[in-house]
């Protein structure tokens, strides 16, 4: 029983990381029809810059951790906004080329990370509390799992509030639903594009910092490995649906952890789940009906 609880919480923690990547992917795809392969690079850059900063200002304190979260978000957001502005915008409405450009960017970015920080993993150190465990119904759960889950939940809450309560949030939601209508009403959707990229990049940057604590290291391949599961999550959840992404992240994370522990087949089960979802409901759990 205690093992199951540990697996559940760890799975939700992993799901939280997936969600931080998938939320941006899903919003970007929903609004712009772009599959962003560079999303992993946003995450990795956020993780690396935060790691560098935490070494400069002193590892292992809560203050440093919070600062690195902010830095991760800022770095990811700025990188994403620049990407949208310089690479995506000139290819406006040409979806395949936009995908290709992000593929090229992710190749180049990972190569640069390897050049600057090396191909080896760099080990991270969080506040001392992270290394301890908390007793949950008899299960000893590492504390960093809770931090990951809480931060991801806060991000979800923040994004939902932004989408529901602000004018730009409304434009984004309307754009996901029917972009031509929004344009016809005389609203410049392109600002919303940059905004969506920035939000997605910031979420990915935060995800990078959290992932570096969750896994205990940063490496140039960190973003790419999370990105593939985030893709799967977005397809299962339904492209363009934030709620779908959140639910699918948790389902995928927990399923992966549990099957990995008992049968060592976590990644396959996720792919089988993907196949089953596609065969029964090609639009995903909460996707629009095509």
């Amino acid at each position: 029983m205690s093992t199951l609880i540990l697996l559940l919480i760890t799975g939700v923690g992993l799901g939280a990381l997936y969600f931080l990547v998938a939320s941006g992917l899903s919003l970007i795809y929903g609004l712009m029809g772009v599959l962003n392969f560079a999303h992993g690079a946003f995450l990795t850059l956020g993780a690396f810059v935060s790691w560098e900063m935490s070494r400069r200002i002193g590892e292992g304190t809560w203050l440093t951790f919070i600062i690195t979260l902010v830095i991760g978000a800022a770095v990811g957001g700025v990188f994403a906004a620049l990407t949208e502005f310089a690479l995506i915008r000139p290819l406006y409405n040409r979806h395949i080329e936009q995908v290709l450009v992000t593929v090229g960017l992710s190749l180049a970015a990972v190569a640069i990370f390897e050049g600057v920080w090396g191909t080896d993993s760099q080990y991270t150190k969080g506040p001392e509390w992270f290394t301890r465990t908390t007793d949950v119904l008899g299960a000893q759960v590492p504390n960093d799992r809770f931090v990951t889950i809480i931060v991801a939940a806060l991000v979800l809450l923040g994004v939902v509030l932004f989408l529901k309560k602000t004018r730009y949030g409304m434009i984004i939601r309307a754009g996901v639903e029917n972009r031509s209508m929004v344009t016809a009403l005389g609203i410049d959707v392109r600002k919303a594009f940059t905004l969506v990229f920035t939000i997605g990049g910031a979420a990915a940057g935060i995800g990078g910092v959290l992932a570096s604590h969750y896994f205990g290291y940063v490496s140039p391949a960190l973003g790419g490995s999370l990105l593939i599961f985030a893709f799967i999550v977005t397809v299962i959840g339904g492209l363009g649906s934030l709620a779908g992404a959140a639910i699918a992240s948790v389902v995928v994370g927990v399923l992966q952890q549990i099957t990995n522990f008992y049968w060592g087949m976590g990644d396959f089960v996720v792919i089988v789940l993907l196949a089953v979802v596609l065969l029964t409901k090609p639009t995903g759990l909460m996707g629009k009906t095509a």
Partner: peptide
């Protein structure tokens, strides 16, 4: 030195340029 010593960086950048400017 760092970007030039990474073949994948050069290829990635070349790829982006081709997509952007050489349809």
């Amino acid at each position: 030195h760092v970007p030039l010593s990474e073949p994948l960086f050069i290829l990635g950048a070349l790829f982006v340029l081709v997509v952007l400017f050489m349809p």
